[in-house]
Design a binder for these strands. Structure first.
Lengths: 199, 199, 199, 199
DNA sequence: TATGAATGAGAATTCATTCAT
DNA sequence: CATGAATGAATTCTCATTCAT
């Protein structure tokens, strides 16, 4: 069924298979997919999961780090785009398109911690701050939002769309569009409260 | 041998206590808070939970119905407000302020069903449609959103704010403000896709 | 639905309704039908069951006594029949036809005891001994079986037939016929062992 | 803190121990012996039961299959015996002697299903048909009974004997003898109804 | 490295029974 | 007499995790 994987050394192969399997399981059953399920999907024994990841939470963390890493790469590339406004929009669109419930990522993150996690997350915020700043300087985004604000908001479209019973899979685009309109500078009263801190 | 029995309290009291306890438990541990936890909070035995609610899902449904009912009452009162634009805004603000994760409500709803649930939910959508329509006619809200769109979006602010690590409790107001700005009619390109169906 | 009962005083009415309900429940779910089920069928509250019967076992015992009583009456009437052989056959046929799993009756009996139970059961054995004796004297039944033997065997046909998957409801007649043939005097070697004692 | 672990025993050992324990528990408390009881008897944790058998029903099925298998082997061996009449008698005697309540086996079978179960049961019926046919051809058994009839009747002796209060353990032999006499060809009127179908 | 086996800690749910009204 | 309410004990089953091989 699965296309013959490039035969890396056994250890790495299983680790990668587990990350994939976990991702698939999370997508289907949410973040409390069982270890048994994940192991089955990866074609290994349950105990092997613990051979590669210290705990269930550690596996979750690893998956999230992997995903965030990808997003991070995308963000860094977009930092050098010509039109800063469009760049930010694109970042949000692509991140939503992955539809991986990155949202919960942040929540769980706190609990599962892990060195790597913190590092990736921090760099993500840095990139977002930069993307936002450039967009603001180009006049494409209102001045009173921060990268952290955007980080939180980027979870909303897919999360919200997930609750519509029989919607088309692109429904999130509607809500991303509304939020983007809300981020535009024209005709926007000052925001209440303060932007949330990073930590 | 026989432990001193609890001083006999009338049925309705315990039922209400259970609804409260469940609400608290859900707030703390999410919707899979255990029956044991809920019973402990309410100060009753596990079996008593099942005396009042047929199953775990039935309890969840009862809690959600209760919450939606409150919101529904609010919405119906606001239907008669003088300024339709402000009325919709207020509805969203107050519904968010309850901070009850009304969001998942809609999702789970489908599964846990129950006569009452469906009825309350439908009436909620009807009220939202009306609120939105009046606001649109008053020129306060863009013409291309529906009550269902708003129903989905109203979950976003508190959901999103919940992931900020050490934020002030009013953080959701920021994101509600942004979304409201996104709902304003001026300077808003046409939305992609179609509004989701009710069912 | 139920034909208007002769309005005995409330207490007795409920007691009778419970016995009926228990019988029906046992027939459908076997002897571990739940008290809740029985109460529901009788249209009374669970606690009322315990008002009339000291325990679940006591209720079972009462039902069994009632049934045995009926059978006992039948047996006593048949004691005066003209053809002793036919009389015994008829007793067995009619007792099987009631298809009430009288069998387990004896088993459970021991545990649930109760004065009445022991008395009825003893009288039953006495009647059976007499029926058998008369049949033996008439040359219709082999000499080496006792009333107790017959008491045990009479459970077999319906019990055995109950395990046939899609059989016609009269299947037990086949097995009763075979057993009756086995009880005939002609061509029957001596039985091994001793007939079981009454107690 | 950590209790001294059981000295590690190989999987098959525990599986066998569980089958034995289940058999013993069934014999004592009937087929609704609790998993807890069975686990205790086998000296393993409750969860271990589910490691070996998917569900309570699966365990029951496994026990029954194992028993039927034994009986099946016996039957197949007896198919080649010299005296067909004696062969059938011996089969019934030995199957009763195992005193395992094989009876319920057939009943439950239908519910607990399972591939193996159906197969073994079917082969059992086939063997019984053959045994009966040979016995009939030898003039030892009446012509109007089938293998299915005998399958049902073979449960009767032990079942019936089980209800005698203080009987000697060989009591079932009496009732088997009577039934065997009933199966003899001489002096037996035609049986009412039709033999039950296999399924 | 990988795994089958084993398990303790819960999970939801059922049930016979008791008590105050 | 009747009952709604309450509960302790038990039941089946799940799951993350550990260990010996």
């Amino acid at each position: 069924m699965t296309p013959p994987r490039a035969p890396r050394s056994d250890g790495l192969h299983n680790r990668a298979a587990l990350l994939d399997a976990a991702g698939a399981a999370y997508a289907e059953h949410g973040f409390d997919a069982s270890i048994a399920d994940i192991a089955r999907r990866a074609g290994v024994a349950k105990a092997t999961v613990f051979h590669h990841f210290a705990s269930k939470d550690a596996l979750l963390a690893a998956v999230l780090v992997q995903r965030l890493q990808k997003l991070l790469d995308l963000g860094e590339r977009l930092l050098e785009a010509e039109e800063p406004g469009a760049a930010l929009m694109e970042f949000l669109a692509l991140s939503a398109q992955q539809r991986q419930q990155n949202d919960l990522a942040f929540a769980r993150t706190v609990e599962a911690a892990g060195e790597q996690m913190n590092e990736v997350r921090d760099r993500m915020f840095t990139v977002l701050d930069a993307l936002v700043l450039r967009a603001q300087e180009a006049g494409a985004v209102r001045r009173d939002v921060t990268g952290m604000d955007v980080a939180l908001l980027m979870c909303a479209p897919t999360h919200v769309a997930a609750f519509a019973p029989n919607a088309e899979p692109d429904l999130w685009r509607r809500y991303l569009a509304i939020i983007l309109d809300g981020l535009h500078p024209q005709g926007a009263g000052p925001l209440p409260g303060q932007a949330p801190p990073r930590h």
